[in-house]
Design a protein around this nucleic acid. Structure first.
Length: 412
DNA sequence: TGTCCACTGGAAGGGAGGGCTT
DNA sequence: AAGCCCTCCCTTCCAGTGGACA
């Protein structure tokens, strides 16, 4: 072989000018169609610069409606202005999907406030109260305004209850040198319903709803990013339109639209083509579906896999709208086949709910009169994806269970 | 109108696992 | 080492429920 194997690809002209324009972490210098939301945040947070306490806020909206990016943008400007004016503005951004317990949230903020010589706050072990005390001490020491952003806060409340929000929203009563305000970001419009009324009234002093982008707005956003990130004349007419339309179907998720466009261009590049057309977008769409589902399927815990496996098995047999009872029977059978104890029906019921939340199945409660009340369960995994073999990877037991699936089908 | 089915989903709590303090 | 504390996964118990059917 002649030359280095990387040379051919390396020499190829990229269709991108700047891939970063499509990064999820990319912070654009302007945010089209979010002027209202930016304005709402600014009007409230300006108090931080006036020496007052900004109201706590709750930001709602579907995924990809710009909540996080707007917040970052506004806080960035706030810090900058604070610096110019000699006001101390501390901001903390916590994603409650990763940091999902009371202890860890407080620990994370306290760690960000650590100075040289402070003893580290351990990941676990201390009573939460002690971590909270440490946090208050450090906040007092730092002074100024503290703005705590809790992204995906609904996640935290589901898992850990509203204790933490209660504690955080009461911080101002115990801080003597410093002020604190909370910005909660949620995908779920109704999540305050699960909160203690005292907490919800304190937290949602100021609500901002981010409406989903409509197709034409997504088109504008894509157009703007494309002109930053993609070489001129590369995109066929209709590419941006299609990306926008597909994303608008997905409840107006701008992030998804950006991913679609980026992957479409990559698809064209991989084929050494110089143009991107709608076929590339279709390819990108199925790639995206596959990429979303695969890692989740592979890393599901064993029993979760077995439950999903049971659903897939029933569907392979042509059954739709399976009831919880049927799922459980197949599942218990599969457990028997591979010699492990099945979990209780109660637990499996929760597992079904979890599978529903992560979007691998669709479950809805129905009543069949005397036939009882139950869930109707359907898999939500695109047909093109072979769920069973994906789940079998690295999981000998599932593999065994799926080898025995024809026996199991006898029981259905 | 009341009954009754097949669950649902909340509450409480056990116990293993990880880590800190004394 | 003993005594705490926190989280995670799970079980047990049980009141509650939507709607077809008698």
């Amino acid at each position: 072989m002649e030359g280095n194997i990387f040379e051919k690809i390396l020499g190829q002209d990229s269709l991108f000018i700047d891939r970063k324009a499509f990064d999820h972490a990319f912070e654009p210098s302007r945010l089209p169609h979010r002027e209202h939301e930016v304005d709402a945040l600014v009007r409230n947070l300006v108090d931080a610069l006036n020496g007052h306490i900004p109201s706590n806020m709750l930001l709602y909206g579907v995924p990809g409606s710009g909540k996080t990016v707007v917040t970052r943008f506004v806080l960035g400007q706030l810090r900058q202005k604070g610096k110019e004016m000699g006001q101390i503005v501390n901001t903390y951004e916590i994603n409650c999907r990763n940091v999902d317990t009371k202890y860890r949230v407080v620990q994370t903020i306290a760690s960000q406030l650590a100075r040289r010589g402070d003893p580290p706050v351990p990941f676990t072990g201390w009573p939460t109260d002690r971590v909270l005390e440490t946090l208050v001490m450090r906040m007092n020491r730092a002074g100024g305004v503290h703005i705590i952003v809790l992204d995906e806060v609904d996640n935290l409340v589901d898992r850990a209850g509203d204790d933490l929000l209660y504690a955080l929203t009461s911080l101002n009563t115990v801080l003597d040198n410093g002020r604190c305000s909370i910005i909660g970001i949620s995908n779920d419009l109704h999540f305050t319903q699960h909160l203690d009324p005292r907490v919800s009234s304190r937290l949602s002093q100021e609500d901002v709803v981010f409406h989903p982008y409509v197709a034409t707005e997504i088109q504008n956003i894509l157009g703007e990013r494309a002109s930053m990130g993609i070489r001129e004349g590369v995109l066929d007419e209709g590419v941006i339109k299609l990306c926008a339309a597909l994303a608008a179907q997905e409840h107006g998720d701008a992030r998804r639209a950006l991913d679609l466009l980026r992957i479409s261009v990559q698809k064209s590049e991989q084929r050494a083509q110089s143009k991107v057309d709608t076929r590339h977008v279709r390819l990108a769409q199925s790639q995206l579906e596959y990429d979303q589902v695969t890692p989740v399927l592979k890393t599901l815990p064993l029993h979760q896999k077995l439950v999903l496996f049971s659903i897939c098995l029933n569907e392979e047999n042509g059954l739709r709208n399976i009831s919880t009872g049927e799922v459980y029977r197949t599942y218990a059978d599969a457990c028997g086949k591979i010699g492990i104890e099945p979990l209780t029906t109660r637990r499996v019921s929760s597992l079904l709910n979890e599978l529903d939340t992560i979007g691998l199945i669709m479950a809805r409660n129905v009543s069949k009169g005397r036939g009882g009340r139950s869930k109707q369960v359907n898999s939500a995994i695109p047909k093109a994806i072979d769920a069973i073999s994906l789940m079998s990877e690295n999981e000998p037991l599932i593999n065994e269970a799926s080898l025995g699936k024809y026996h199991l089908q006898g029981h259905l």
